[in-house]
Computed example of a mutant assay.
Amino acid sequence: MKILDVLQKEAVLVNLKSRDKKSVIEELAMPVARIANINHDDLVRVLMERERLGSTGIGGGIAIPHGKIKELESLAMGFGLSRKGVDFESMDGRPAHIFFLMITPENSTGLHLNLLARIARILKNEPFKDRLSNAVDSDEIFNIIREEDETF
């Protein structure tokens, strides 16, 4: 499965305003909840519960908040870019700038893990991360992801 099989342009936020972890999750969750037709507060609660188990800030300026919701019909994803960076309690202690939010149905563990692994793998590509960080709008983000998606 490719990222753009799941990510919709309406869920791409290129100028996150939030300055802390909970606010970023709330901001990223807004379009995803609407697209997935789920309650925003429930989505935020699930994502914050997952954060309490350990930060999804994987280091290198990246965070991948994720979780599972029982009544969800299919996987949903959001993308966010913070120009200033947010303390996401990342493993390396650095602020996160690139965010992929992912929510999956409770019974889709394989799909969940495969997409998480794909995102983590492509984000190891420094030129790709740099291009994402410097993108000016959702169209550019989409094109950058599409190019990378096709090479993996």
Results as ranks from 00 to 15, higher is better:
K129I: 08
G80I: 06
E148V: 11
M48E: 00
E71P: 14
G61N: 05
G78N: 10
K84P: 00
S82L: 09
I103G: 00
L16V: 12
L47P: 01
A36M: 03
G93Q: 06
M30L: 15
V6E: 11
I69R: 00
E27M: 15
M30N: 08
R19D: 09
F99D: 02
S82R: 01
F142D: 01
L132G: 05
K22V: 14
V12R: 13
M48P: 00
F128G: 06
G110F: 08
A120F: 05
R52I: 03
I145H: 02
V46Y: 12
H112D: 07
D20T: 14
R19E: 13
F99I: 08
S55Y: 12
N15F: 06
A135D: 07
K70R: 10
M48R: 02
E150L: 14
I122R: 10
I119M: 12
D5K: 08
I62Y: 03
M30S: 12
E71S: 15
E150Q: 10
I122N: 06
F128I: 14
Q8K: 15
I144F: 02
P95G: 04
P105C: 07
R50F: 11
A120Y: 09
A117F: 14
I62C: 04
G60C: 05
E73T: 00
R118Q: 11
D92Y: 06
Q8W: 04
P65L: 09
K21E: 05
A96C: 14
P65G: 11
E10R: 13
L4G: 11
E73L: 14
V86A: 03
I98W: 03
L4D: 06
G110C: 08
S23V: 00
T151Y: 13
S108P: 00
A120V: 05
T151L: 15
S74T: 14
I64Q: 02
E10I: 11
V12A: 08
L7Q: 07
T104F: 04
E51G: 01
H97Q: 05
H66Q: 13
T56G: 03
T104W: 01
L53K: 09
D139Y: 14
L4N: 08
P95N: 04
R83E: 10
V136D: 13
P31Q: 09
L116P: 09
A11E: 10
D137S: 09
V44D: 04
G67Q: 03
G67K: 05
R121N: 14
G60N: 09
A96Q: 03
N37Q: 12
V14P: 03
I25S: 00
G85I: 09
I145W: 02
A63I: 07
V136H: 10
A76W: 01
A96K: 02
I144S: 02
G60L: 03
K68C: 04
A33Y: 04
E51D: 07
E27W: 15
A63F: 09
L53V: 04
F152C: 13
N15T: 00
F100V: 04
P65H: 05
I58Q: 04
Q8E: 15
T151P: 01
D92G: 09
D41V: 08
